[in-house]
Amino acid sequence: MIRERTLNGLVLVLLLAVPLWAMFNDQPFTITLATRAVIFALAAVGLNIALGLGGLVSLGHAAFFGIGGYAMGILAHHAQTYTPVMELPFLIEGTKSMPVIWLVAMVTSGIAAFLIGILSLRTAGVYFIMITLAFGQMFYFFSISWAAYGGEDGLLIYVRNDFPGLNTLVPINFFAICFTILCLVLLLNGLLARSPFGLALNAARQAPQRVQTVGLDPQRLKLVAFVISGVITGLAGALFADLNRFVSPTMFSWQMSGEIMIFIILGGNARLCGPVVGAVVFVMLEHFLGGLSEYWHIYLGALLLLVVFFARGGLVGLIAGREVAHD
């Protein structure tokens, strides 16, 4: 048994070491794989704020993942076709600049999370799971029938977007951007969990009545957590779209929501690095089992069942023991 903090450090160092090794050995595919893991981890870290800290089981986070993806897709699509996004009431041009795209992705998914959160938080328990699922499906079907942006076929972006001062076409550079963002968000997540807001949120999940008694509004705490969560997952969506240079309705699908949730549970619910471990293990399984057998989903399913039965705290819980999350 090692301490969770040591484990977190180890995971991040490993996650950095593998692509560096791949760079020196000229294996760009490994770097892409690692980037994919990092982006999935980011999406799951986002969901973990709602799920782990706030106890909000959202099966609709693909909505924010997809909104981020489409924010990138739409802006870059207009930039590459030299058409404005819209002209009325004021002119908005497309862009290939990553920071601008991220900002747009975060703001739009934040607004969406606010609206979805306000409506969904009226319900609780299994109804909450289902209503978030329904909102996710709404976006899914909307994107399918949105012919202006590719409908079912999605949008193809020819060249990866630009980041000031870096050539993003070099795989390791793009990995570095994603990895830096992941570390920053993890830092933010750690601080948030220990902040007065995080403590109040934790309490709101465990004993909403008591929180109400001391004069805090549990619903408002949960709403704020839901919005933060949506913003982070939206950012991950924009990065994911940039990694593939492709956006399609699949990013909105409920299987995507399920996968993001799987990362968390596989790694360890409410653990700081649980989502990271989960995403990395998932991407590795996808790669190696996928290479072994066409039917690798069977093994994945069996493994998930084992985790549910024998490793309730996820992989992090299995290794670092059942200490209380976030110290």
Binding site: V57, G258, I265, L303, R312
Partner: peptide
Amino acid sequence: LDQVLATFALIL
């Protein structure tokens, strides 16, 4: 949460 995960695994 566990039910969602386990039955998702069953789908796979």
